Each structure stands twice: as structure tokens, then as C-alpha cells.
Amino acid sequence: MGKSNSKLKPEVVEELTRKTYFTEKEVQQWYKGFIKDCPSGQLDAAGFQKIYKQFFPFGDPTKFATFVFNVFDENKDGRIEFSEFIQALSVTSRGTLDEKLRWAFKLYDLDNDGYITRNEMLDIVDAIYQMVGNTVELPEEENTPEKRVDRIFAMMDKNADGKLTLQEFQEGSKADPSIVQALSLYDGLV
């Protein structure tokens, strides 16, 4: 993909415009910024974590950033290329609610087996709590990752089998306004 070129080839721009919710001009602008920050044309896990640390200076986002990195890194080569970056950004910032929920499901399904187990969710929720640090005051019933996961599973795990399917996750998330709101945070920002 033209590693350190400051412009993408027209056919690449066209393809990314088809695969995302961005215009050709927006794709070019994002590429310019991506190459400025990642001259090699790729972003590794350490660089990704560094970006998260800028956004969450009062907590430790390392663990959460690693989980997000793994979802962005579609081809699992340990690096995020621009096409992976822009497609994930498109879903998280401008995707439909169902697209965002499928993306979030992939984030929580750490072993990619098609289910979110209690332990997988606990890993992610714990990482989120570490990331936000003491900057967020949580209600008593959610002031630990374990309590939050218990509440989520009580609401979403309809067949009580200890794991969530994509359908259970989507339906449960849509029924909880706070989850829908959290997924909409990026709307309109890009």
C-alpha cells in the first residue's frame, strides 16, 4: 500500500471509500495523518498503546488498548495497516448500531470462538476500569469489574449457560440505554 507515500493510489482510495462510511477526501485526510504518525505505514501494539495513554492519562489503558489493537489487526500480523485502521474507525465512528455491536462482540470474544464467556467479559471490564482509573464515580452495584459483569450476565445471558452469543449480546445491549450510549460516543466526531 505504498508504505511511506503521502498519497494513496486512486484505486485504493476508491476501494476504501466503498468499504467504509468515509468520502474519498476523508480517506485521504486520514491517510495523511496516519502516515505522519506512522511513517512506516504500520502501527504496532506499543504505538497503539501510546495513543491510548494520551487519551487516558489518569488510568492505565495498556490492557484495553491491547484488546482493541487485536480487533483492529484483522489479518493478525501484529501490525495495523491503514486499510485495517480506516475500516475499524469507520465501523466504530459511523457504523450502524448492529455493526458497532458486532465489532464490540469481537472485542469481548477474546478467543474468537463465537461466545463471550464470563471470564472474557471480566478481562475486558477489568481493563476498562484500569483505563479510566479513579476518574469515573461508579454506583455501588457496579464499583468492581466483578459486580459489573454479574449485572451484565444477569441481564443478557437469557439461557443461563454462562456465555453470551452474538444475538444475546446484541439484544441485551439494545435493551440497556447506557450500552447504546457508550457505543454512540464516537458518532459525529469524525
Rank of each mutant, 00 (worst) to 15 (best):
K25L: 11
D37C: 14
R148K: 04
P10H: 15
F105R: 04
C38I: 07
G2I: 00
E15S: 13
E74D: 14
N119C: 15
G188V: 06
R148F: 11
F153H: 01
K76M: 08
T135H: 08
T144D: 07
S6V: 00
A88C: 12
V132G: 09
A65V: 15
Q49G: 07
K36L: 08
R151V: 12
A154Q: 14
Y108H: 14
F153W: 10
T23A: 11
F82P: 02
N134V: 09
T62K: 14
E81C: 01
S4G: 08
F69D: 01
N119M: 01
V91Q: 12
T66L: 07
R118S: 09
K3G: 15
T92V: 03
Q170R: 09
L107G: 02
R102A: 15
D77F: 15
Q170F: 09
A46K: 03
G33F: 03
E14Y: 13
L97Y: 12
L89S: 01
E99K: 07
I86N: 12
G59M: 01
K50H: 01
F55S: 03
F153I: 04
D109F: 03
E81I: 12
T117D: 03
D44L: 00
L97P: 11
N70A: 02
V125I: 07
V13W: 15
L101R: 06
V180P: 14
K3D: 15
E24G: 10
N134M: 03
V132D: 06
P10S: 12
C38T: 06
L138N: 15
Q54F: 09
G172F: 02
F85Q: 00
A127K: 06
N112F: 00
L16V: 15
G59K: 06
T66V: 03
T135P: 05
K100D: 00
K19G: 07
W30C: 02
T135S: 03
Y115N: 10
R151Q: 09
S173F: 10
L107R: 01
P61C: 10
G162R: 08
D98L: 07
Q54L: 09
F48H: 14
T17P: 15
L16Q: 15
W103H: 02
W103A: 09
D60G: 13
W30S: 00
A154L: 04
L122M: 14
S93W: 10
M156K: 05
Q87W: 13
E74A: 04
P139Y: 02
K9R: 03
E146F: 13
K25E: 10
A127D: 04
V13D: 12
T144I: 10
I80M: 08
Q87T: 08
T96R: 07
L183R: 11
K100H: 03
M131N: 10
K7H: 02
M155V: 07
E84A: 07
K36W: 12
G41K: 07
K36G: 01
